[in-house]
Design a protein around this nucleic acid. Structure first.
Lengths: 194, 194
DNA sequence: CTTGATATATATCATATGATATATATCAAG
DNA sequence: CTTGATATATATCATATGATATATATCAAG
């Protein structure tokens, strides 16, 4: 082998840093090379094209998200997912933009994914009395809350207002509130029926 | 004057359509000219540069948002704003991406804007007992809900699940739930104090 | 030491893009 | 009808970008 080698990891790390600081649209071969202190050659030795490198950056982001999730321990697995997502958005706002917002691929297999979650929800005693439609509505509300909080946490203006513990508190509280509301409305509807 | 003239409006409309269908990144002088059936000349006669035209497109989007808002009549002005925002995101997803998500300018004067809203909230009897911090928290939760629902409504996968009436229903219900939750927690805290 | 392989650097190409210079067509003013 | 103004079309420029061809440097195998 020749002298030294820029590894795939080095390239992905450099690209990830650029994307973090300046956004995905700044991922040009020349920017990456400059950031690495090399020419553009290492890019094409390690990847077939720039697109492949970008995909590797996204895979790295997914890994980081998984790591953040694994560090959560609120007791409720659903809440954990929500917390991890918002924390990721806050810590890597520009990556979040690319992965979550632009990525419409995520809705491939979204229908099956929903079914899986609904089935998981059915195992929860508290949710036993809900119909499938109600569960889907509850899930939608929760997803909206999480997505919205991510969107806000991602913005500079909210950074100081939304420290990690506050994010967890808000997600927890509103989650409980929405669930309570659905239970209350259901019992009210039951009453009215009789 | 020479024969015919491509008006500013014609140019903005053409650009708006391109942005709607293909996204803001497709707003190139040649794309706009092609869509208009002209050369690139009319662009530079009517605007100093492409950036000016893009700003005009964003102004048009803001106008449309205002129009949608003016058509709302839920009884609650806050809810109206939320509904209008989500409906806009659903109808013009790619414009929403540009205006709401990318636009970090919106957080200029965000602090003053928040104060205005908080003062408005204080006029509401139901919210009279809340401290400023509580009101800010309530506002944040509502904003998160609205932003998140917009984000979901914008996606193809949710289009059929989120018709207009359902959007209104969800915003209304969750708004009530979150407020109820905050009231409940406050009274619980008051109890504990005594 | 020689040779082949390959990582790297550099020059270069093709293409896309915003912008401008120039020519042409059209119309109003006189 | 002539003239000036200007909307439009076209050619062209400068720059950015992804990609490739080529030369060079380095190292392992023999």
């Amino acid at each position: 082998m020749p002298r030294e080698k820029y590894t795939k990891d080095q390239l992905v790390d450099a690209a990830f840093e650029i994307a973090c600081e300046s956004g995905f649209e700044q991922l040009t071969i020349r920017n990456i090379a400059k950031h690495l202190g090399s020419s553009i050659a290492p890019i094409y030795v390690n990847f077939n094209d720039l697109e492949e490198l970008k995909e590797a950056v996204i895979r790295k982001a997914v890994e980081i998200n998984k790591k953040i999730l694994s560090e959560q321990d609120s007791g409720d697995p659903f809440l954990d997912v929500g917390i991890a997502s918002v924390l990721f958005a806050k810590r890597y706002p520009r990556i979040y933009d690319e992965v979550v917002i632009k990525n419409d691929k995520s809705y491939q297999g979204q229908a099956e994914n929903e079914k899986l979650i609904i089935n998981q929800m059915k195992k929860d005693q508290q949710l036993a009395s809900f119909s499938d439609d109600d569960l889907r509505l509850l899930l939608l509300k929760m997803q909206a809350l999480q997505a919205g909080l991510s969107l806000l946490a991602r913005k500079e203006a909210y950074k100081d207002m939304l420290d990690d513990s506050k994010i967890i508190k808000i997600l927890d509280e509103t989650g409980v509130d929405v669930l309570d509301g659905m239970i209350r409305r259901q019992t009210a509807a039951d009453m009215a029926e009789k």
